[in-house]
Design a protein around this nucleic acid. Sequence first.
DNA 1: GTAGGGTTAG
Length: 640
Amino acid sequence: MVAPSHTRCAQTTRSISFIPISQHTANKQLLESQLISLLHHCTNLNHIKRVHAQIIRHGLHQSSFLLAKLIRTLTKLNAPMDPYPRLAFQQVKQPNPFLWTSLIRGYSFQRPLNDSILLYNSMRRVGTGPVSFTFTALLKACAAALDADLGRQIHGQTITIGGFASDLYVGNTMIDMYVKCGFLDCGHKVFDEMPDRDVISWTSLIVGYARRGYMDSAGRLFDELPLKDMVAWTAMVTGFAQNARPREALCFFDRMQDAGIETDEVTLVGVISACAQLGATKYANWVRHVAEKSGYGPTNNVVIGSALVDMYSKCGNVDEAFKVFDNMRERNVFSYSSMIVGFAMHGRANAAVQLFHEMVKTDIRPNGVTFIGMLTACSHAGMVEHGRHWFATMEKSYGVTPTADHYACMVDLLGRGGCLEEALELVRTMPMDPHGGVWGALLGACRIHANPDVAELAAVHLFELEPNGIGNYILLSNIYASARRWDDVARVRKLMREKGLKKDPGSSWVEGKKGKIHEFFAGDVTHVKSREIRQALDDLVNKLQLQGYKPNLSCVPYDVSDEDKKRILMTHSEKLALAFGLLSTSAGCTIRIVKNLRICEDCHSVMCGASQIAGREIVIRDNMRFHHFSDGKCSCGNFW
DNA sequence: GTAGGGTTAG
């Protein structure tokens, strides 16, 4: 017999069998395990309620065993513990520790943490002893709430109650709790004192070191780890990727494959992130091939898809990013935000806006990152009014409260757009303390609009907030240099010397034949083809000069002769990379260059001219954004 | 019941 409601349900979701009452007295244990199995396959709240009705019909509503499974299933489906699971729990006269703990754990996934603690105290009051599962549930809740004080108290209980501190599961969860709360040393102490450890204990600690940026310590632990599994290897790959060490991440992935370890989607996400940082087409195509070969193609996997969208954008290929995005079967806020940020970086503000509207229509709610993308898109396109609109509506219409990062974007937008006073006013009136990003945006705007006075004000705050941020000193020095205030330039440079800060050398790299990467530093003459590169650059500049190009000497922030300035300009790393790209790739090939610093105005105009004379598309990723040069024009509209 | 993941501005 099948109830009508059941038939309706079976059309859309997995069906729930009913167990005839006549069987129930035959074997209670068998019945319990059948009901457990039904709960195990429940995929929604209605399924669970129907199985619960069966539990009651069979007179098993006092079974802690069944009710614990019921609550764990509800937890898995992210159902609230009030009122339904709580009421089901209250009907059990003598709940066993597992049932108590299931409810404690259920509450722990949904803050406040207090509910879990109150229940734990009630459990102790009625004289029910905890089990190790109780402590893992409580510790996990502390980790999620980043409440190390409470975590310490629970740690204390595992010792005083006895026996639990030596439990492997409790120990592992404790390491994870301390690590997540930022107490790496306490996590390490727990690890040292554990009588038994497994690969999970080691990995928890490795991740702790990796997240703090201590990759050397993480590596030493990894080397000592007797049996390394896929998760441990992945922790290292991801650790390097998250610490901006993409080459080492890829190297580790190679080692992982050589060791015959399987790869899953989490590993791939780390590898894709490393490739995104390198920004090289060769690696981008390689990792996509690896992902597809391993069965994690972007079409069916939303996380891999979103990571690839980000990677292609960062590799300068925003069209390919959109192709991936367009073919994804499922999209979420990460996919949309990655694509919007991608469009923003490439100066395609209208595409970003269009995608935003589409996202809202599909009922995916934008988050803070989405609006960072929207504001950046407007900023890079000089769309001040549009930016004002998004900033004003993000909270009112979409419930996203602006953070200091959003204020930084607004300061950037207003500042670049020439509204320096308004930008300064926004910094003064923002509801939270401005961080380095906010003052940095203002300082950047002062460079564009040559305003040394406001720059000084921003720099005072920046030097305090980021005393070792070399870029800020250089920016201020360059702003003084543009105003020919050489004494002030000297003063900033002296300050840098006193602090022992050294300027990062400008470097650019370009992919040559077969994807080989060639890196150039400013003034570099070490490349084997250095003479040909120099000659190609001279030829190019001669042709440009015939069309009216004049070297922009204000791009050299030194008090030297004009001849010296011209010489220095011709050795900028992106020009060397361009000349090499022209020499080493065939006509019609796009030249892709990555630069570690911001591209200067002179190089920017040379790139514009070169794209026309050589008939080539040139894509440059600098430390701010992408520039697409084609037919003598740049996608940034000379506004960057 | 315990470990690894994607989007963020100057």
